[in-house]
């Protein structure tokens, strides 16, 4: 770890979790270096976070070491539209399915992975569903029916106002009489 810290700008988050930010150009080479020159030989998770207000995705490669007691998160910002990242299946075979999932859920392309077919959704034509501009509520409302008999729901704030007004006018009426 000490050795790696001299090479890379690694931040320590907790005693067993480290993070490293790299640019998209150096991503593959960094992962390659870590895979072959360090203890971090396992890819345990591939995450993607949508920072829509900054117009970028954040990819996170969660690497775990040989002893399985230390995690290093290699993170990389990528654009949101039509991006393609170099696939890491040659380094970590398990990345195949993780990349397939991100491709389906976020629309990120992975160059070099030719198994980017359907993961969980079948024939999905819409926007990739995990992108933040995908509106779940609108989707549900256009695809499913709601149960009948629930239209007598009242807005409580309105009701309080109505009641107050009624009480007031009743009082006034009393006062007038």
């Amino acid at each position: 770890m000490q050795n790696l810290m001299q090479h890379f700008e690694i931040i320590q988050k907790t005693p067993t979790l480290y993070a490293l930010h790299v640019s998209i150009e150096t991503l593959f080479n960094t992962l390659h270096h870590l895979r072959y020159q360090s203890d971090f030989i396992t890819l345990s998770q591939l995450t993607c976070t949508d920072w829509i207000e900054e117009e970028r995705f954040e990819l996170g490669y969660m690497l775990t070491n040989l002893e399985r007691n230390c995690n290093l998160m290699v993170k990389c910002f990528i654009g949101r539209d039509d991006v393609t990242v170099a696939s890491v299946v040659t380094l970590f075979p398990q990345a195949e399915v993780m990349e397939r999932e991100l491709h389906e859920m976020f629309g990120v392309g992975f160059e070099g992975n030719d198994t980017l077919y359907d993961f969980a959704l079948e024939d999905w034509q819409d926007l990739p569903p995990m992108r933040r501009e995908f509106d779940t509520l609108a989707y549900v409302q256009s695809h499913y029916d709601f149960r009948d008999g629930r239209d007598d729901n009242l807005d409580v704030k309105e009701q309080i106002k109505i009641r107050k007004a009624a009480a007031k006018s009743a009082k006034e009426a009393q006062g007038g009489a």
Binding site: L154, Q159, I160, R163
Partner: peptide, 9 residues
Amino acid sequence: NSGCIPRID
């Protein structure tokens, strides 16, 4: 204050 009570689906 609101004269409302919850009903659960």
